[in-house]
Design a protein around this nucleic acid. Structure first.
Length: 456
RNA sequence: GUGGAUGUAGCUCAGUAGGUUAGAGUGCUGGAUUGUGGUUCCAGAGGUCGCCGGUUCGAACCCGGUCUUCCACCCCA
């Protein structure tokens, strides 16, 4: 006997209602990407493992799904290698491919590989699933969709501004309140420099990233543990506890980062970006957050992250500028900046807040009840007319009991039902029933189209 | 990867001094109602009690393992 059918850990099936809601998210995001002039691309689910390894830090390497080589994958290994190599390392020896971990690195590969066909700056969007061998939890899946927008081949901070606008427009359209957190890796690098530990930037940022969660004391302990000197920690603390308006924070920071060229540059970039925002302010809350670090180690400039202001679920969108990413694939001096929307988490937030549109808005508008073959033949051309007019409509395929057909409409939450029987055929009209109010009216086919077009 | 919970009908859950054919609500199917759904009433279908093994005369219940889901770390969308 076969096992009960199941799917791998951390993956999901999407039934129709869920899918309708997911499409609502994707359609909204895609529409806004297009309006901003971004073009769609896709890349394969699998990349060569060498394209993926080392791009996401040690932690990321562990979370990569590797695809076992076809054929006799152990033929090239000696028995010693086979038995002595630790499992984790063995995986990379017998796997030449891996599932993509995000869309940014494959995009960088794409840009380098197709550089002669692309005119820069290149604005692309990409909506595809990615895979991570993480331990699943709420809001964390092994297969999930990212919706990436990137501009590559332009250093201008106008791109960062456009991304902020896109974020604002997307969440506005979805009806979600969000906080956009902004920081700059150069500022973080400056801080590391000023406190006398320039090479420890990653450790420092990872630690201060947790400030909200583990508190000042916790951060201090973690930094001590990482081997940072007491002197450095003491210098760092006032920076973290800065209060005041964005401008005040920036002024204070600028003073502290006087000695660091990189730091000063970071500050001026943040200022510049905020100037753009001032010209056309966004609806979302925008805040400078020095504790925002972001783990992906390819970011070099602006970094940003979006959190729901209403539901605690981790970030629902994030990104930043990466100056060297294509360098890894052999194309130097091309800077890119982009953000990624986490569709699955956005879904969870919308669901929890009950902000999805009514099902009727995403589904069939009209159902014709089937009274028999003569009626069906009468209805078919009308049905075609409705569909040409963009009204989602269907005909019940069986001459089932009326109760059953009505229940079907009810279950599907179809807002209108059309009744065409002998009487209607003879008189040339259609009885339209509004399922919500229960009211019925008699309409000609033309009036029906008219009526439902306006009801949409 | 570390630590901790969880798992009984499609769904939400009852069900222990281990004892014959495992329950409720909801949903599903049919009927009451042969051109009218959502309410009500009646009937019916649906479970190898996550899976494997052990203890026992006997296991949904005790023990071990395993998988799933969830929670806290880690990390992140």
């Amino acid at each position: 006997m076969a096992d009960k059918p199941s799917i791998p850990k951390g993956t999901r099936d999407f039934p129709p209602l869920v899918m309708a809601r997911r499409m609502h998210i994707f359609d909204t995001i895609r529409g806004i990407f297009k309006v901003h002039g971004f073009q769609a691309i896709e890349t394969p689910a699998m990349e060569n493992l060498s394209s993926l390894m080392g791009k996401y830090g040690d932690e990321g390497d562990k979370l990569l799904f590797k695809v076992l080589n076809s054929g006799d994958f152990k033929a090239k290994l000696s028995p010693e290698e086979l038995s002595q190599t630790p499992a984790g390392k063995l995986g990379t020896m017998i796997s030449g491919k891996g599932l993509r971990y995000d869309l940014t690195v494959p995009f960088a590969r794409f840009v380098v590989q197709h550089r002669n066909e692309i005119s820069f700056p290149f604005k692309r969007y990409q909506i595809q699933p990615v895979w991570r061998a993480d331990r699943p939890q709420r809001g964390r899946y092994r297969e999930f969709y990212q919706c990436d927008v990137d501009v590559i081949g332009s250093n201008s901070l106008l791109n960062e501004f456009e991304l902020i606008q896109i974020i604002d427009e997307v969440f506005e359209a979805l009806g979600l309140k969000v906080v956009i957190k902004l920081n700059n890796r150069k500022v973080l690098a400056g801080i590391a420099e000023v406190i006398g530990a320039p090479e420890r930037m990653t450790d420092i940022t990872v630690a201060i990233d947790k400030l909200e969660k583990i508190g000042q004391e916790g951060v201090r302990n973690e930094l001590e543990q990482k081997g940072l000197s007491a002197d450095s920690i003491a210098k760092l603390e006032p920076l973290l506890l800065m209060q005041g308006s964005t401008q005040e924070k920036l002024d204070k920071l600028e003073g502290m980062l006087e000695a660091s060229e990189t730091g000063k540059q970071g500050i001026s970039e943040v200022r510049r970006l905020l100037e753009y925002v001032d010209t056309d302010p966004v609806g979302a809350e925008l805040e400078i957050d020095l504790t925002l670090a972001r783990g992906l180690n390819y970011y070099t400039g602006s970094i940003l992250e979006v959190k729901s202001a209403e539901v605690a679920i981790g970030s629902i969108c994030g990104g930043g500028r990466y100056d060297d990413l294509t360098g890894i694939f052999g194309l130097e001096g091309v800077s890119g900046v982009g953000v990624s929307f986490g569709a699955d988490r956005i879904y969870d937030v919308l669901l929890q807040l009950d902000r999805f549109p009514k099902r009727a808005a995403m589904d069939t508008t009209l159902l014709f009840v089937n009274f028999g073959d003569a009626e069906v033949k009468y209805i078919l051309p009308i049905l075609g007319q409705l569909r040409k007019s963009g009204i989602s409509s269907e005909l019940y395929p069986e001459q089932a009991k009326m109760k059953k057909q009505m229940s079907y409409a009810n279950m599907r939450e179809i807002p209108f039902v059309a009744l065409v029987g002998e009487q209607e055929m003879k008189d040339g009209f259609i009885t339209l029933k509004d399922m919500e109010s229960g009211e019925q009216e008699r309409l000609s086919p033309e009036e029906l189209v008219e009526r439902l077009s306006s009801a949409k």
